[in-house]
Design a protein around this nucleic acid. Sequence first.
DNA 1: ACGGACAGGATTAACGATAATCCTGCAAAA
DNA 2: TTTTGCAGGATTATCGTTAATCCTGTCCGT
Lengths: 338, 338
Amino acid sequence: MAVNRITLRDVAGACGYTVNTVSRALRGDPRLPESTRVKIREAAVRMGYIRNSLASTLRSGRSGNIAVIVNDVHNLHFCNMLTVMDSELRQAGYNIMVLCMGLNEELGEHLIRSAISQSVDGILYFPYMNNRSHIEIMQKNNMPFVLLDRRIQDIVTDNVRCDDRQGGFLAGVHLAGLGHKKYLFMSGENRSSSQIDRLEGFMQAMREYGIPESNIRVVPGEKVEAALADSTLRELLFPLDYTALVSFRDEVSYPVMLELADMGLEIPRDISIVSFDHLRGDIPYLPKLTSIFSEGQSVASNGVRLLLNRIEHPDLPPQVIVLPVRLFDEGTAAPPVK
Amino acid sequence: MAVNRITLRDVAGACGYTVNTVSRALRGDPRLPESTRVKIREAAVRMGYIRNSLASTLRSGRSGNIAVIVNDVHNLHFCNMLTVMDSELRQAGYNIMVLCMGLNEELGEHLIRSAISQSVDGILYFPYMNNRSHIEIMQKNNMPFVLLDRRIQDIVTDNVRCDDRQGGFLAGVHLAGLGHKKYLFMSGENRSSSQIDRLEGFMQAMREYGIPESNIRVVPGEKVEAALADSTLRELLFPLDYTALVSFRDEVSYPVMLELADMGLEIPRDISIVSFDHLRGDIPYLPKLTSIFSEGQSVASNGVRLLLNRIEHPDLPPQVIVLPVRLFDEGTAAPPVK
DNA sequence: ACGGACAGGATTAACGATAATCCTGCAAAA
DNA sequence: TTTTGCAGGATTATCGTTAATCCTGTCCGT
């Protein structure tokens, strides 16, 4: 366990100054003459000194670390955001710590505690579901944080997300505009705000086009996820009484498309499909798929901006940014054949 | 910055014990009677106490954190490994900290220092290139670590990787066995051991089949990466004097396949292609592609095992595990037409 | 009744760094 | 000369925990 690490004291001993002076030299205190700083720094480098940031943080109250807490790493979209967050935070003098994963919510609380426990200076939090207790922990501990990608019911706090409602609406308008009357809607995790908002936006579009709810079969998220895991998606596609299919995410849509092809159905001739995520933006060699795109990079960089702002001005009122989304029409939706 | 966090002292004050007793109660010291422990724990929970793990680590010398250092998060394969490492380390009582990314090597050293600075108990390191200075830093600081995915020239240390040489060999044998005589080999980053080993294994196969080096055009990694970034891959495909193409990774192969299709060439009729990574294992809805698969999950779990072992027994001799790879034949290679 | 053993905790001293003060000497100002 | 200023550092007190040691009372055996 790195028993014999070099400490400030060792460096001090080696170059004839006190611990304190060495500390200040290494931090570039201008009150020390250039010559002393250089001498000390050279000694430190020569000896391979590495600051113990635990001790440093403990004393100074600043760690220079930002935690990113996320449940779903299996997601290229997230990887992109991570890259953006990393580069922008690094530029602002912070390091990023990814506390990750597993899809279980208990872990979420554990990770938040862990981040607080390690005295990070702020948290970029991607909540998976509607869980306010997590938020309360951060608030009670005075921890600056920004909620990303999702909103939490009835909680007003710094938040950057895409306009899922508009996304659902666009999907609905696109399909209804082509003349579709009967739909299959394959949901995502039912408690996620994205699912709720997308479905709501979609339903809004349906209403505006005068399509009755009874024409829309909504498959709950758990069933979809379970079927995806079991490779039994096909069962969910019956009965084939719809002409348009909306899916909560591309990672479900693609397997669905394979099933449909396998069943001898042609897209978009027999069935139209519209999806969310536009993975093809990240993996251009995927098959074409009309999909709603949320600009993750913008979520990431706005999130960073809000967080840094919050750290500097703890008393500012909360800020919510809802970014517009956009439909990439890649031709998997067409007018239904009667 | 979380100014007013609850400390042990607060809890102690609230329930009438000393700081030390509270600390021991929360850690479950058996020398304290059950009743006291319960009382203290309840107070701590009620007050929302969160241990300051910085102070704890500083004093005890153990952080319970393992750092994973990686340059390339843009990789599903890596995400899988991460999941495995996380679950296995958690089970052993450790938290995982991902220190990430950016493809520049300078950052690598920064991240290693950062991990040491934060007193992690061990490092799982995915080196990007052949850089021994990084290794030396960990060694000098007595930090247990395991090298994953790559080897570093002339350095013997705990190491888990896949048999890239065998992978290259299998690719070569597969194609040469089908009768191919002229090849295009699109390399990866030239200083990575994977590239070196794969090419070497491939060349070995070529020799065994009596194919002269002059029949193999090797495109250096930088050119490939640059072309991929610029979308100018097509230029690298000329002249079309080969019948078989080997590519260092699927993420290059897929765009290449699109280019070839665009040029009116059919796979495998006109050109055979064999690649590395078998991304389809992670993204099953990708087009078929004959590719060499390295079992990342096994790399991850063996890596964790070696690291835990190293932490417990610092003086054991270094252990190297080279895992076998496997060719997934998905039909993108066929005998050449004369 | 007396020495031990032990339960149940309290005291004290670190861990390695930084913040806040405090000292010392020399040079310029009064 | 005396004062003042300040460059250049040294001292000291924490940060929140945990390790090591020490104390106090009670119960026991002999």
